[in-house]
């Protein structure tokens, strides 16, 4: 059943701004009903809401000015810090390693992004990298839901040898 046809949105891989949807009501045989005219035809959804266009993944405040001491790992505040704990977060010059346990939910993790900042020996910010959790392809893991995940944020190749300290924070977390 596909009773509503959104003109201008079908095949909407490249969506143009559409002021509203023209709603064609299908009868039981799939043909348009003669009564369609009496149903709502005004705007229902727009393909753009006029919001600022994102230019990339989110930053975390303070990442550039944190200046952790060489060999240490600093922590960045994020919007979901009341939903998880981290353990064993270390930085070995090549990557940031750690484990994160969600404390607010026990259902599957759908999305999780860790943002890491990297700093030179003088505490100057030199760059950043991200790690995204990838849920299982079919959407459900076998076995009991596991809210703990290990993460690794590798130092970008161009920063190798310069990164002496790191910081990290969680920019996104969604549970099923």
């Amino acid at each position: 059943m596909k009773p509503l046809v959104a003109a201008g949105t079908a095949g909407a891989a490249s969506l143009a701004l559409v002021a509203g949807l023209w709603l064609a009501v299908s009868g039981s045989d799939g043909s348009p009903s003669a009564d369609a005219a009496s149903l709502p035809t005004g705007p229902v959804v727009n393909t753009s809401l006029g919001l600022p266009t994102p230019t990339g993944d989110p930053e975390l405040p303070g990442i550039r000015g944190l200046a952790p001491a060489s060999g240490t790992v600093g922590r960045l505040a994020g919007p979901f810090d009341d939903r998880f704990v981290t353990r064993g977060v270390t930085f070995d010059g090549r990557a940031l390693h750690g484990s994160l346990t969600v404390t607010s939910d026990v259902s599957e993790i759908l999305a999780l992004q860790v943002l890491a900042g990297f700093y030179d020996a003088d505490g100057r910010f030199v760059g950043q990298a991200r790690w995204d959790f990838r849920p299982p392809e079919e959407g459900h893991e076998e076995g009991h839901p596991d809210e703990s995940v290990d993460f690794v944020v590798e130092v970008p190749a161009k920063l190798r040898g310069r990164a002496a300290a790191a910081s990290y924070g969680v920019t996104n977390l969604v549970n099923e």
Partner: peptide
């Protein structure tokens, strides 16, 4: 496209 695209920010992977 994904239910995980909840906000507050756009995240490409989500």
């Amino acid at each position: 496209l994904q239910r995980a695209c909840q906000g507050p920010n756009y995240v490409e992977a989500s």
